[in-house]
Design a protein around this nucleic acid. Sequence first.
DNA 1: TTTGTAAGTGAACGAACGTTCATTTATCTT
DNA 2: AAGATAAATGAACGTTCGTTCACTTACAAA
Lengths: 195, 195
Amino acid sequence: MRTRDENKEAAIREKALKMIVKEGFDGFSMQKLARAAGVSPATIYIYYKNREDLLNSLFNEIHKVFIANALENFSPGLSLEKGLWLQWKNRLGFILANPAHFFFLEQFRHSPLINHKDISNSEFKENMKGFCINAIKRGELARMEPEIFWAVAYGPFYSLVKFHLQKKSMMGNDFKITDHKLKQVLKMVLTALKP
Amino acid sequence: MRTRDENKEAAIREKALKMIVKEGFDGFSMQKLARAAGVSPATIYIYYKNREDLLNSLFNEIHKVFIANALENFSPGLSLEKGLWLQWKNRLGFILANPAHFFFLEQFRHSPLINHKDISNSEFKENMKGFCINAIKRGELARMEPEIFWAVAYGPFYSLVKFHLQKKSMMGNDFKITDHKLKQVLKMVLTALKP
DNA sequence: TTTGTAAGTGAACGAACGTTCATTTATCTT
DNA sequence: AAGATAAATGAACGTTCGTTCACTTACAAA
């Protein structure tokens, strides 16, 4: 039998991502994608059941890569400060290196497409759970619901990231994240989380 | 001359909002909208130049209403705690009363449609600026960049809101905001913002 | 070298897309 | 009551949509 041309699938996924980021889900079509990737429309249906399947597959893969990157060098035994800093840096590094991937994830997450899915990564959950328990034991973290922890520990970080990625952020400024600013916010967040 | 039927435009806007929230921008079409609103496709073009104009108009109006609601009873002279609490409560009240409006705003904001626009409300900016200056003078707030203030003061709040609106939030729980939890997070945020 | 089979194709399907247009309808001014 | 005019319409425009299908191509096993 004929062997699959891996370049074809890679081209399909890459062009799909770019098209969605530039034109949104309504500007994205299978025929345009085929043209952009240099394949026949029918070829796409060898790799994916249909349009929705392609979009879901794209989201799943990118989300997995994102989480894996966030957990790089992470261990639940790290101190709250070191662990949080590492995760922030990991995430920021990925986002700045792959802004299109992040735009895609955010666009997907905030669209109705997300309703047909169940996003959750048990490896990630286990890590975070252990991380919190250890921090509480060590007296670095007050006892609180996981969602509240997440909101305080990651909400400010992601707000900063979004300002960074916008041309004009809120006040008309051109805000850019620096290590110094990130450290400044980390200190504030750690103060908030302290028992 | 014949007079405009205001019910028609209201129906168009309402059905457009619902369709977009349920089916996304790619599930939304002018012909489906006309059918849902009980008008002719051509009628929509009396009120809006084209599809993009309709979407922009919808976003502008809803965003304006949202900001106006957030500023209700607000004054830059309020203490940091009172002012922040009021804004959180205003926003939460609106979002819970009009979840579809919030979904629409978020979906639009995270789509490429937002690139063609310039979101900024000078009345809101003036209010926030005065609010911060006063809080700094009073010693309730450390001096910091506006984006950092926003990230710490509103990032956690919006994270909570998003958990509340999801069926299964992160850890598989069914998280719901209560006044008590909101106050708990407010205390944490105020601690972080203190000089 | 033949053969089986999955990969890959271009053309085509009916349906739906955004938008326009000739026409009718309702209301204001006279 | 007549005339003017903008609102409103249904049908239609050409285009593009997601998907399928009959067919060709390339490669592994025989």
